[in-house]
Design a binder for these strands. Structure first.
Length: 287
DNA sequence: CAAATTTGACCTCA
DNA sequence: TGAGGTCAAATTTG
C-alpha cells in the first residue's frame, strides 16, 4: 500500500489528513482514559477504548505504510484490540489466571491467544512498569525476543506479561504481544500521563497511541516517556554506551525514538506505538 | 543495598 | 528432540 506513485503533494496531504485523524483519535482516547472512573470498571469504556485504539491503529499503520520504503505490509499492527476480550468483572480474576495459560510448573506455558499484539517503530511506555525476565533468539526471527512481566507480578499477583520482538531493522519495528491483563493497582494516573505527554510536546501523541493501555507508574524519567523499564529488547551490543545511564528500556526507547525521527516523521508513529500498547496501558488490559 | 538486567539452565509441548 | 518460555543466580545499576 505504499503510495510512491502519488504526487508528492498529494501524498503529503494524505499524510497530513491521516496524522490529523490519528491525533484526534489520540485525544479521544486520552479523554476516555482520563474520565474512566476506575480501570476495572466493567462498563462499556473498555469496549469504546478498544474501538478508539483500533482507529489509532489504522491511522498508524497507514502512516507507517505511507512513510516506509520497505514493504512492511506484513508487519503492520495486526490488531490492537482484536483479541482483547474484557472479562466481566466477576470473571476477571479467572481470566487473568488463564491468560497465562496453563502454567503450573516452571516451563509449562501453554498460552491462550495474546491479549494484544501491536507493532511499532519505537518502544514506548504504556504506563506499566515491566521487568524483563528473559530474552531469546527464536527460529524465525532475526532478532532477539525479549520477555517482560509486570513488576507487580509478585506483590500484586499481576499476571500481565509481554513479549517484544524486533521485526525490522530499518526503520526499526517492534512487535509487542501482550498476554493477560494487569490487575495491579499501580498504574499511572491519567493526569500524569497527560501531563507527561504535554510536556513532551510533539511527542505527546506518541505515547498514547497505540498504546493504549493502562498505565502506571513512573513516568518518564529521562527518556521521553517512559518508563517502564522495558524494552530494551534486544540487546543492542553496539552502541549502548551512549545510553548507559538509562534503564535498558529507557535507552532503547530513546534510541528508537531518535531513529524514528529520522525515518518517519515522528508523527507517524507518534503514536507510537510504542507504546505499543503498552502503552497500552491504557487498556489496561482490561484489567 | 535494593532493584533491575543478563544469561544459562530448566521445563513443557508439539 | 528442538523450540519457546520461564526461572534464578550472577551481575549491573542507581
Amino acid at each position: 500500500m505504499r503510495m510512491e506513485n502519488h504526487p508528492s503533494n498529494g501524498r503529503r496531504a494524505m499524510e497530513e489528513e491521516l496524522t490529523k485523524g490519528r491525533d484526534i483519535a489520540n485525544h479521544l482516547l486520552e479523554v476516555l482514559v482520563d474520565h474512566k472512573p476506575n480501570t476495572h470498571e466493567g462498563s462499556m469504556v473498555p469496549f469504546v477504548e478498544d474501538l478508539v485504539r483500533n482507529v489509532l491503529c489504522s491511522f498508524t499503520n497507514t502512516l507507517l505504510l505511507l512513510n516506509t520504503d520497505n514493504d512492511v505490509s506484513n508487519e503492520v499492527v495486526k490488531d490492537v484490540t482484536s483479541s482483547v476480550e474484557c472479562p466481566k468483572p466477576q470473571d476477571r480474576d479467572e481470566a487473568c489466571k488463564s491468560s497465562f495459560g496453563t502454567k503450573i510448573r516452571r516451563g509449562c506455558y501453554k498460552r491462550n491467544a495474546p491479549t494484544w499484539e501491536t507493532n511499532s517503530s519505537i518502544l514506548m511506555e504504556d504506563g506499566y512498569v515491566w521487568r524483563k525476565y528473559g530474552q531469546k533468539m527464536t527460529m524465525n526471527a532475526k532478532y532477539l525476543r525479549s520477555y517482560y512481566r509486570c513488576t507487580h507480578k509478585y506483590d500484586e499477583s499481576c499476571p500481565a506479561i509481554k513479549h517484544v520482538q524486533r521485526i525490522q531493522e530499518d526503520p526499526p519495528l517492534y512487535r509487542t504481544t501482550y498476554y493477560g491483563h494487569h490487575n495491579c493497582k499501580t498504574s499511572l494516573s491519567p493526569e500524569i500521563m497527560l501531563e507527561h505527554s504535554a510536556s513532551s510536546s510533539d511527542s505527546s501523541m506518541f505515547l498514547s497511541f497505540s498504546d493504549t493501555f493502562p498505565r502506571k507508574e513512573h513516568l518518564f524519567s529521562s527518556s521521553l516517556f517512559s518508563s517502564t523499564k522495558e524494552e530494551p529488547m534486544e540487546v543492542i551490543p553496539e552502541d549502548n554506551s551512549v545510553h548507559n545511564q538509562l534503564p535498558s528500556s529507557d535507552y532503547l526507547l530513546l534510541c528508537d525514538y531518535e531513529l524514528d525521527f529520522n525515518y518517519s516523521r515522528h508523527d507517524m508513529l507518534s503514536s507510537n506505538e510504542s507504546d505499543q500498547f503498552d502503552y497500552g496501558s491504557s487498556l489496561d488490559f482490561c484489567g
